[in-house]
Design a protein around this nucleic acid. Structure first.
Lengths: 263, 263
DNA sequence: CAGTGGTCTAGACCACACT
DNA sequence: GTGTGGTCTAGACCACTGC
């Protein structure tokens, strides 16, 4: 645009190197734009599921070309933070979509077809506020003794208890979370976290081991003692790599397996 | 370029829709270019580790703009088929690089630092040509009874046997593979496959379960019977999604764990 | 039809590596 | 300096969606 006067809302991006100085941290324009969009996402300027402004609008807002905005959004889309839909717009990603359901769950039935087995039944065994043990506090970047919500549940597929998991969530961000909410919410638990608590999990990391269950665990999963199980410890993060959930799961692998793609 | 006469070597890309017909399979230009480059990679026009022609050269060769070639190469780079190095060129990816060593191995020491423990010691227990059992044949898209190379080995870290794995490779592509080669080759086994047999593994999929070892397996890994282990079945693919390796591994998870990132 | 994201081009300039 | 990939722009046109 050659319009001589500036757009309304506007943060002028930092110009690329014009000085002859050494450049300790050069950052391309599109990366700066990406950060700005990221901040808006984080601040909740657009809600999960909503459309963000069009590329043209954003280009005008940030006073850059459409191509630069495009490259910024490309990266956000690659990180699953937004979803592009040709002809419609670009939307804030959400866990409340059939397409991305079970986004972080890699356990699939041996048949390979997760849709065939239908949704999981959730049985909440326990949900209480406690002081964070040292290991949980460390995983969630809290101080030992800070309040956390601890939750234990069993997930069953076609009536067969398959996953036993314990969740820990920062007490501050999840005030008022209760067992009924977890059990009754229609849709993924992560979708409930978005809707009810405004917490969007963006990425996660898992540590996997093979273990034997103790007597209680074996009983809850209705397997004989000495049945080897997959131990999956997951830490899920919101924006800015802030850990917001620790999850320790025991997976039965007699009818299901953990599926991973390597690229 | 506005040069009026065509470049030497040349496949003219198919023009985008000019007819008014319905378009059953529209493919953007950069996808077509990507396919052309892919075919050259597959045909071995450029060897692993070598530089492919510059973007300008490829643009001239295919009679498209640099931007279109760029987008094609971007995707190839995202799939780890080539590696871009600013100021130097774009190189055919290879398993024989420190940066991408153990590209498909997700088992890491609990310390988290794989470099700290040094390279794995490989003990080859067995290496022979056999007729493919039904399950192996199916995994490798062979006919039951076709020749395959079967290989059993133990990987130890800091003297501790940690991985016991069986490999099956199509007999046709791996003629002459022997135990010494596998044991002695300096560098990843996948690098040897590239160098000695011209087989480049491009992606893989894994199925993971928790299991108990039989007596022999427990002895080879020097663990008590009843020690739960990770069972990792991997199928590795070359270009065009052709399966070229079946690998069944047993991983000890007392000192190591399987690390996975979810995005 | 207008508006959105998707493709393609041509040209300018920057950052980096080698020589 | 020359050549490489990396960034940025401006503009044209295509494909898809919904009014």
């Amino acid at each position: 645009m050659a319009t001589p006067n500036p757009s309304p809302v506007d943060l002028a991006p930092i110009a690329a190197n014009t000085s002859g100085m050494a450049t300790p941290a050069f950052s391309p324009l599109y990366q700066q734009i990406k950060e700005l969009i990221l901040h808006s996402l984080q601040a909740g300027e657009w809600k999960p599921g909503e459309a963000i402004p069009s590329e043209m609008d954003l280009a005008a807002r940030f006073r850059v070309s459409q191509g630069t905005v495009r490259k910024a959004i490309d990266e956000l889309a690659a990180e699953n933070l937004v979803i592009r839909r040709q002809g419609k717009g670009t939307f804030v990603a959400t866990h409340a979509e059939h397409q991305v359901q079970y986004r972080f769950l890699k356990l699939v039935p041996d048949s390979g077809d997760r849709d065939a087995e239908g949704p999981a039944q959730r049985t909440v065994l326990d949900c209480k506020r406690i002081r964070a043990p040292a290991d949980v506090a460390r995983a969630l970047s809290l101080r030992s003794g800070d309040a956390v919500v601890q939750l234990r549940r069993v997930l069953s597929f076609e009536g067969v208890p398959t996953i036993l998991e314990d969740l820990w969530l920062p007490g501050n961000a999840f005030k008022g979370l209760n067992a009924e909410q977890v059990a009754q919410y229609p849709g993924p638990t992560y979708a409930m976290f978005e809707m009810e608590f405004g917490v969007r999990m963006v990425r996660a990391g898992e540590k996997i081991r093979a273990v034997l269950p103790d007597a209680q665990q074996a009983a809850l999963l209705q397997v004989p003692p000495q049945t080897p199980l997959l131990s999956v410890e997951r830490i899920a993060y919101t924006y800015n790599d802030v850990p917001m959930e620790l999850r320790r799961g025991l997976y039965r692998t007699d009818t299901h397996h953990y599926r991973n793609e390597l690229n």
